[in-house]
Amino acid sequence: MEVIELKINAMGNEIVLHPTLVFDHETSILIDTGIPGQLHAIKQGMVKADVPFQTLEGIILTHQDIDHIGSAPHLLEELNKSISVYAHKEDQLYIEGNVPLIKTDISRMSDQELDALPDEVRYLYNNPPSVKVNLLLEDTQELPYCGGIEVIYTPGHSPGHVSLYLKRTKTLVAGDAMVKMNGRLCGPVEQTTLDMKVAKQSLRKFLNYDIETVICYHGGVFKGSPRPYILEILSEIV
């Protein structure tokens, strides 16, 4: 397992995204793909992990946001072979571009909001990435890769958000269900979460797993059990 660090500049601030590369001797699976244009950085991350690019057999998208779908189309084009693209059915139509992405749908934005967007962000919102999902994920489903990857359906941040449990390493890939801030685990970012109450309630599922490491897409790696933080977040539900 390797956590790839992808750095982006967002309105003058550096943000680091953390896709997860899961691999064994023959196969690798990438969980989330950064923003468009980060293919080279992903390939560099795979080189650092000593994982050949052509071993990539699947991409798992935890949900529909641009910074997760991002470079998936370029990865598929570069690989020049058929691989599996996984996502939950509730986010499928958005990921495939059949309907606008919920959080960056410019038709829902006011003129003032559009004017406030930098040119490159406005272009991205007008031309979001899309990719064909050929395999749908379901809650508790186990994918037969690298010791077993169990799907945990965690809606709230988006309708089809999923997290993944890597059985071999007892690692939770939380996606955006949780973030790491100042060394501690927190619930999802309220400004980008569609239903905060549902998103927090989804975290209850994590209590059923023996977790030793948590990977947050925003914040990176947390070592230890998330249980006390989850219980604290659940206690805040109104």
Rank of each mutant, 00 (worst) to 15 (best):
I35Y: 12
D24G: 14
D91L: 10
M1T: 01
I152P: 01
I29G: 08
P144T: 00
E236H: 05
P128I: 05
P226R: 11
L21F: 10
P129A: 07
D115P: 00
G156A: 13
G183P: 12
I106R: 10
T55G: 00
L136K: 12
I31V: 15
I152G: 00
V238D: 14
S130G: 00
D111N: 10
L194A: 09
R168A: 14
K89R: 06
H68D: 07
F206K: 04
C216K: 02
P159S: 14
H88W: 04
K48A: 12
L124V: 04
P128C: 04
V51A: 01
G175K: 08
L17A: 06
K81H: 11
L101N: 08
S107H: 09
K167G: 04
T193L: 02
G147Q: 08
P100N: 13
I60W: 05
V22I: 15
A10K: 14
Y229G: 08
Y229I: 11
G187C: 11
Q201R: 15
V179S: 13
L79T: 06
H63I: 01
V151I: 15
D24I: 13
G156T: 00
I211T: 05
I35H: 04
L114W: 10
L39M: 02
R108M: 03
Y209C: 09
V16I: 14
G147W: 03
E232C: 06
P228Q: 04
K48G: 02
R204M: 14
S107T: 15
I106V: 14
N126R: 14
L164K: 06
K81C: 08
P118R: 13
L166P: 11
G220C: 06
Y217H: 15
Y217I: 02
E57I: 00
Y165Q: 04
T104Y: 15
T171F: 01
T171K: 07
L203S: 11
R108S: 05
M109W: 12
E113G: 00
T169S: 09
Y86Q: 08
P52H: 02
I69H: 06
P118A: 07
T33C: 15
E190G: 02
R184T: 01
S82D: 11
K167I: 01
Q191N: 10
Q64Y: 00
N208R: 14
H88S: 04
L143H: 05
V22C: 10
V179K: 12
L56G: 00
P52S: 08
L234S: 03
T33H: 09
I237L: 08
Y145S: 12
N13A: 02
V99P: 06
E5W: 03
A87C: 09
L164N: 03
I230C: 10
E232I: 00
I230A: 09
I102D: 02
D105K: 05
K197I: 15
V173Y: 14
V221G: 03
N208W: 03
L231I: 10
V221W: 02
N9T: 05
E14A: 06
I95Q: 08
F53N: 02
V131Q: 06
G97K: 11
D111C: 00
E138I: 02
I60F: 05
V133D: 12
Y145E: 07
Q92L: 03
E96P: 05
R204N: 14
K7I: 13
E26Y: 11
P118T: 04
S71T: 15
I215M: 09
A49D: 03
I149A: 10
E5G: 04
V51C: 09
P226D: 12
